[in-house]
Amino acid sequence: MTAQAAKRPEQGELVLSLRGISKHFGAVSALTDIELDVHAGEVVALVGDNGAGKSTLIKVLSGVHQPSSGTISFRGKEVTLANPAMALDLGIATVFQDLALCENLDVVANIFLGRELKPYQLDEVSMEVRAWTLLNELSARIPSVRDVVASLSGGQRQTVAIARSLLLEPQLIMLDEPTAALGVAQTAEVLNLIERLRDRGHGVIMISHNMEDVRAVADRIVVLRLGRNNGVFTPDASNHDLVAAITGATENAVSRRASRRKAETGIQPEDQP
């Protein structure tokens, strides 16, 4: 643990830096010239419409996809993320949108997948204790860590996936839609957790469609649109500006709807909760 603590970057140190990242799938350019910086102790929210390239960017950073061009620097050193194992070893952990859990294995096996203790004689007792500790840190409600993941609810699976990402004490944690499947209390827990991660000096990238969640925890909001950078905002930016950056027009479905409501009720859209 002391080695991990010594390795941990200083608060504010540049952890991750992307320069000119592009990714093509055949003729489709999913990402074009993406620039992104994440510092230690900072929560960066990645927002954008469906198809903006958020999940593709996450997959590039987790080693699932390789970028077509551009450079990734992790803690000042240029790195290649050829496969997920390399990203994990560097200290980049990911909670995928589809969670990527093995439903036929139990909770402990999923949390320790690929990182089992004592490879030739699995240390089930230590793994189970560590699993309970991680889950209790998340205030998770899992009936038994020896149940297969198939028997868990969506929110419980989400918690297992987050617990797994914390196992290695990563320096950068990426959460793809972490609150999408969660109830009110668990959403608050996850947001608390993100703040705790930030305070412990981890860099956090969070993807969310929920602007309320984004504003609650993000230090910076990076907007992607059609695979390109489309502005960086602070959490106190107006909803109107954010939505305009996300949709690419001041005149858009959201503003039209807001002005229609305004015309009907005579209430300012900003007053709406």
Partner: peptide, 22 residues
């Protein structure tokens, strides 16, 4: 063993196993 655990994981969800670094 870790190998056996990986076998089960690959059989259950190969993509999840890959993303777990197996």
């Amino acid at each position: 063993t870790q190998w056996g655990r990986s076998m089960m994981a690959v059989g259950g969800n190969a993509e999840a196993a890959r993303r777990a670094g197996i």
